[in-house]
Each structure stands twice: as C-alpha cells, then as structure tokens.
C-alpha cells in the first residue's frame, strides 16, 4: 500500500497481479457478467489509486480493500438490476481452465480455493447457506429471511456464527502451516 501511495505504477501493477484475478473471480461470481465484472474491478483499483495517499492501512490491507470495494459494488449492482442468480458456478470448468495454465499463482490459487471450499463444507448447512447466499448471491439479510421463511434474527445469528466458525477453521489450518497468508501480506 505504501508503494501505491508513492505514486508507483509498478506497485499498482503488482497489486493487480496479486489481487486482480481473485477480485475478478469474485465479481463474476456475483454479477454473472464478464463486462460488468471487469468494470467493477477496474473501478476498485482506480479508487485505491486515487486515494492511496490518504489510505493508511496497518491492518485493513490493500487487497482486502480492493475485494471489499469490488464486492460492495457488485452487490449494489445486482440488487439494483435484479441480476442475481444463485446456482453454483461450474467449478469443473474453472478447474480445467486452471489446468491449462499451471503457473505458481494458479496452483496456489487452486490450492487455496479448495481449502476454503473444504472449510465451508465443515459448516452446518444452514450457516453455509446464509453465508453463500449473502456473499455470492448478493441477498440482504432481510431478503434471506423472506426467501428462507425464517425470522430475521435467525438469519443474523446464523451468519455471525457461520462466519466466526469459518474464521476459526481457517485459523486452525493456518497454525498447521498450510495457510499462506499471501493476500494479507
């Protein structure tokens, strides 16, 4: 982040190399539209570029900021355009695409993706459902309550408990040494 703040375009490029593909994957997952997804990513990087000099993050990292911006924008768009869809992505297609370009980055990303997906599978179904529909589907808590026919308070509790549990599972894995905190470095 400090490098970006110095006006170093090379640093912006590095930030893109580290975070761009993940940000794009997230945007596509939420928006289901290549062009809108690229717009959201471009906008997030430029927002970071514009105000990098003022954004002094010690704990909230540049990559986290990018992903948060991309996600907020994507969710705003799907809620406005009712573009939201909830069927899972064709994970097999993504895997095949990875296989065709076995760079270090792609290998790491595939490894991490599978690890996080495995962690998600350890959550109770109702917690995983709340998290996935909110984060990937762009549903608000009250929309989820209506859609699933449960009280809003239940959704809030499930989301909180699920996210806290997911964090715990990922932290445990990190202590075992398999978690490369690449994104947050």
């Amino acid at each position: 982040m400090a490098l970006v703040a110095r006006g170093d375009e090379g640093a912006l490029g590095e930030l893109y190399d580290r975070t761009g593909r993940i940000a794009y994957g997230l945007a596509v997952r939420v928006l289901r539209d290549d062009r809108l997804a690229e717009d959201a990513v471009q906008e997030a990087f430029l927002a970071v570029w514009r105000s990098a000099a003022g954004f002094r993050a010690e704990r909230a990292k540049a990559s986290t900021w990018i992903l948060t911006l991309v996600h907020r924008r994507a969710v705003d768009l799907v809620r406005r355009e009712e573009r939201r869809r909830t069927e899972p992505l064709d994970e097999e297609a993504a895997r095949l695409q990875d296989a065709s370009e076995p760079t270090d980055e792609a290998v790491w990303l595939r490894f991490e993706r599978e690890r996080v997906q495995a962690a998600l599978k350890q959550l109770p179904d109702v917690q995983r459902e709340a998290i996935e529909l909110a984060y990937y589907g762009g549903f608000s808590q009250s929309q989820l309550a209506e859609r699933l026919g449960v009280p809003l308070g239940t959704i809030k509790s499930r989301m909180f408990a699920g996210l806290a549990r997911l964090r715990e599972i990922l932290d445990e894995a990190s202590k075992e040494g398999s978690w490369r905190p690449e994104l947050t470095s």
Partner: peptide
C-alpha cells in the same frame, strides 16, 4: 477487521475464470 479477512478467503473460494 478479522471478518474482512475471512471474506477474503470467500473471495478466493469464488475464483474461477481469468479476466
């Protein structure tokens, strides 16, 4: 701060096609 890092992990889990 810590939930945002967990959300980073969810973003990684979504990753698929390249831009």
């Amino acid at each position: 701060t810590s939930f945002w890092e967990t959300a980073d992990a969810l973003a990684i889990a979504a990753s698929g096609p390249e831009p």
